[in-house]
Amino acid sequence: MKPILSIQGISKKYGFIQALKDVSFDVPEGSVYGILGPNGSGKTTLLGIVLDVLLASGGTYQWFGGMRPEDARKQIGSLLETPNFYHYLSAYDNLEITAGIRGKGLDDRIAVLKQVGLFERRDSKFLTYSLGMKQRLAIGAALLGKPKVLVLDEPTNGLDPAGIAEIRELIKKLNKEGYTIIIASHLLDEVEKVCTHVAILKKGNLLVQGPVDVVLSNEDHIEVRAADMEALKAVLEEMPGVKKIRLADNTVGVLCEAYIRPEDVNSYCFNKGIVLSHLVLKKQSLESKFIELTK
């Protein structure tokens, strides 16, 4: 199956600053693809390039296996960086322009406004909107005409907690309906809850990419505590299959080979005369992975 978006060796320089360096990955159809990175890591630059508002210094990209970029964009609902609308026009009239450019009808304009909670304010001018409302309109505009793909750059910017939860539910729902969703964010919590794939960027370098479970696999660790922490640490350092021991916050973190289970640690320690008071298998969160990778 052809990927929805294929990025090959994209680089971008702003003067002396290398904003992106040889970034390549594919976005499979039907995925929720999270592009993660701290502020200034190049997420928006990358999306700007694949949406043709920025020019790459090197590399290529293809939508839908090589469709003409402007035709592809008509089938992609995008929100890039900030909501950009004609400030003297209402939500209603702004969407008419969006639909016109996409070459789509206006049948779903009301439905979209209701979906993002702006129906009551549809006739107010854009400049009277709060940041959250502007963001909602941008999401609404992206949904207009039922595109196959959504590109959302920090979609929860400016939204209140209820709004953030709504967007998360919306993304899940749309993904179930078959939309492919590319989402850039530094809010890992949000991304972790919805993404099937991730690419992590740091200072323009692609650190890791792939399905979430692959990126995060083999990275589980076991947390243990006992009365004598130093003895516990010493014993575990001797244990076969243990790769790394970390003593912090009165807890020993054990990073070990995949075949070692918590019960193995328990019985090993017991045989060495140490009784554990605490034993937890910690799945690595995207957040800790992210911090580990980007620090």
Binding site: L51, E70, R73, K74, S78, N84, F85, T98, I101, R102
Partner: peptide
């Protein structure tokens, strides 16, 4: 107002 960007993002060349 960066609407030029939006026009392109929405599908104009």
């Amino acid at each position: 107002f960066r609407t030029n960007r939006q026009n392109v993002i929405d599908g104009w060349s």
